[in-house]
Amino acid sequence: MIKLQNISHSFTGSQNEHIPALKKINLEIKEKEKVVLLGTNGSGKSTLLKILNGLIYPEDGKYFYKSRELNRAALKDREFNKIFRKEVVFLFQHPDTMIFNPTVYDEIAFGLRQLKVNDVDEKVRHWSEKFSIAKYLNTPPFRLSGGEKQKVCLAALLCLEPEVLLLDEPSANLDPRTTGWLIDFLQELPLTIITATHNLHLARDLGEKTLVLSEHHEMFYQGDLKAFLDNKEKLIAANLLHVNRH
């Protein structure tokens, strides 16, 4: 479903220096696979998710989505862009950046209205009930707590019935109870899910496959998640585990 070939990307710093973000990344993700993207802060996890969502284009390498190369030209094709934006959705780390409608109802209905879906009202009510946010439908979303905003964003994305869900540190703003709820919810979703996190405790419950980025922005490991999490030496080498001196 998703294939990356030799993807490299870098950013320009304030002094015009090149700051590498990803180096020669190769990966393949099958339909309905649940993948956990691990790596330390600054290893390139968010950049990789943005490339997968077609928000930035890699400097080098190729990205194939359902066998079609995804590049600037492909996303300029309006019909393909519409399909891609409906099928591949992205939950940003800070839900505030995704919220801009006057009410929770409008926030959830935003994508449905763009798609000119007939039963917008029915779908909004269904998803708001599923996320227990129906009582807030007339409330401005910015008045909600971090966890509730996260639920509004998820409802707004999932009501489009996407095929791929990209999540960037989804538990960063959540309390333990909401985090537990989110993990249960994600486990039951029949979608391809790619979750970026550096939280090893959560990682185990978020998928069956892992992609691990090194501090040098290279692919350090890809394969079975549980095997990786049980391998202390690999965790230390990837700088995901620290052994205390005492």
Binding site: K50, N53, L55, R78, N81, K82, R85, K86, V89, F90, F92, T97, M98, I99, F100, N101, P102, F110, G111, Q114, L115, F142, A156, L157, L160
Partner: peptide
């Protein structure tokens, strides 16, 4: 990026006003 990601078709003027004011 979030706006780009969520906009399936061209955003309407009303949506852009909401987006800018919320930002």
């Amino acid at each position: 990026f979030a706006l780009k990601s969520r906009v399936i078709k061209r955003a309407q003027t009303k949506d852009l006003h909401n987006y800018i004011s919320s930002m």
